[in-house]
Design a protein around this nucleic acid. Structure first.
Length: 501
RNA sequence: GACCCCGUAGCUCAGCCGGUAGAGCAUCUGACUUUUAAUCAGGGUGUCGCGAGUUCAAAUCUCGCCGGGGUCACCA
């Protein structure tokens, strides 16, 4: 009878995994266990090779030896051409399969798509123009026991992309670009603020009271103290306490906040915010610094203040228009809420233009609702919306001569709020009164009454300098800067339900 | 939480007015060998998300569940 072939047949995907395990065993026997390798001395990144040897003409060989390493993305002509990918670029590797040693050809048979290899050799440009490393020596530095996604179409299924982000990163250039841009953006903001004398600080993630904003918090439990703790919904109150103490007159924090609310293309349960506080300035300084930060980010990432988003050009070049919230409503609906002071009348006016509001809402909440319904999504180009109702601004100073309007603005781009800033309220007695008012306002039947943060009131009573404060949504800014339609694109590991096994 | 859409091979997808699952990539065998999604010939691929129902017969129709996407609600 015929001898059966002992090499594994990849009849099924399970067999493919088994085949790779056999490949690993063969590799271990012949060349040693790749997982014992601890280092490879790279001399060049793929992009650096292409850059350094760019002057080579087609068909020209250099005498320069380089060592490169990366993941095997393509194998052509039985290993004659291998394409590797590192964190800078792809790079072609060449083996002369007619000339190479028995050892080399044995190794070539053991290389699979997805393996991590290190290669040393001379650089040349092929007759067809590709910068290539002629391998003198190749080492399999790590073995992929799972096959990579399809080499041309990559990983398309959004669920797989988010669940297996490492595969997405390897398979999808856009994902690499988007996430790198996001992290470079964060670095650019940090550097911008360092250069202006801001001190980066860290404040608690675990709060005994979830303050500084109104949102449902995630609740956890501390065993030793036997008490509930809340994941922070905002860092605001602690940051102010650091300024009160004089740690620095300029502080900022870029870090995570957690809100136990619905998910959407613009909401992830954990998201990143920038909050900064500067003593002895008011909200107008925050207007300027908002524009400067965002413009700096656009220049850093795009070399231009103009950025394309969803087929539209958004121009971040300062200055940006500043418009009153009530004035914008007037402009877009014809209703002038400055001429209305009675809450019931305001609700009726809202209803007359098709905005239903819950009974019991105050003037400011009605203005906010109408703005959200009729104006917000019209604000595509960067716009500072100023003069927000005091009622919805419990941590902001009101104007002395216009007591129901706060010294506050929100910045909108593409219909999204990306920044929120005010002249910080530093009057402890008024702050307590505002918190009391807030506690009275029942937001929904499920929402528990909001407790008053006595530690914060006490800190204010110790004396807080007048100051401006700013909050900025980093993920949304990242979306705008990377033309991403979902917040999940700019978060490496977005929150997901576990896949059932 | 409500509504709409989606879930077929490891990956990208076709099949879906019911008739018992198919292509490309990947993988295997062979040929070829300076390719660029290499090419050519041949082989194998699956709880058709899970469960139930209707039916002689279900990937296909119906219902429930799971997971994902979207719209809305929620979200200062």
């Amino acid at each position: 009878m015929l001898m059966t072939d002992t090499s594994p047949q990849a009849a099924t995907p399970q067999d493919e995994k088994a085949r790779r395990v056999v490949q690993l065993e063969k590799l271990t026997t012949a060349f040693g266990d790749p997982f014992d390798i601890t280092r490879f001395d790279k001399t060049h990144a793929a992009a650096a090779v292409k850059e350094q040897f760019a002057p080579l003409a087609n068909g020209e060989k250099s005498e320069s030896r380089v060592s490169v390493a990366g993941r095997v993305m393509a194998i052509r002509n039985d290993g004659m051409f291998i394409v590797i990918l590192d964190d800078t670029d792809r790079l072609q590797i060449f083996h002369d399969i007619k000339q190479c040693s028995e050892e080399q050809s044995a190794l070539l048979k053991l290389v699979d798509l997805g393996d991590i290899v290190g290669v040393t050799g001379l650089v040349r440009r092929t007759p067809r123009g590709e910068i290539t490393v002629d391998a003198e020596r190749m080492v399999i530095l790590s073995k992929a026991l799972e096959p990579p996604p399809e080499k041309f179409h990559g990983l398309k299924d959004v669920e797989s992309r988010f669940r297996h982000r490492e595969q997405d990163l390897v398979a999808t250039p856009r994902t690499r670009e988007t996430l790198r841009a996001r992290y470079r953006m964060v670095a650019a903001i940090r550097q911008f603020l360092y250069d202006r004398g801001f001190l980066e600080v860290e404040t608690p993630m675990l709060h005994t009271l979830a303050g500084g904003a109104i949102a449902k918090p995630f609740v956890t439990h501390h065993n030793a103290l036997d008490m509930p703790l809340y994941m922070r919904i905002a860092p605001e109150l602690h940051l102010k306490r650091l300024v009160i103490g004089g740690l620095s007159e300029k502080v900022f924090e870029i870090n995570r906040c957690f809100r136990n609310e619905g998910l959407s293309p613009r909401h992830n349960p954990e998201f990143t915010s920038l909050e900064l506080y500067q003593a002895y300035v008011d909200f107008t300084a925050m207007l300027d610094i908002t524009e400067a930060i965002v413009h700096h980010v656009a220049m850093t990432l795009h070399g231009s203040g103009k950025v394309m988003f969803d087929g539209r050009e958004i121009d971040f070049t300062p200055p940006w228009p500043r418009k009153g919230m009530v004035d914008l409503i007037h402009e877009h609906t014809g209703v002038d809420f400055y001429k209305i002071t009675d809450p019931a009348e305001a609700r009726a006016a809202a209803k007359s233009i098709g905005v239903d509001t819950m009974p019991g809402l105050g003037w400011g909440q009605v203005v906010e609702a109408v703005f959200g319904d009729r104006v917000e999504d019209k604000l595509i180009q960067p716009t500072h919306v100023v003069d927000l109702p005091k009622e919805i601004s419990p941590l902001a100073k009101a104007w002395p001569d216009r007591p129901h309007v706060a010294q506050r603005f929100e910045t909108y781009v593409n219909g999204w709020e990306i920044a929120n800033a005010f002249s910080e309220l530093n009057n402890p007695r008024e702050q307590r009164a505002r918190f009391m008012e807030q506690a009275e306002q029942k937001r929904g039947p499920d929402d528990p009454p909001h407790p008053i943060d006595e530690d914060f009131i006490s800190a204010l009573s110790f004396g807080m300098p007048p100051m401006g404060g700013l909050g900025m949504g980093i993920d949304r800014l990242g979306m705008l800067m990377t033309d991403s339609k979902s917040i999940r694109e700019v978060i490496a590991f977005p929150t997901m339900r576990p896949d059932h096994e």
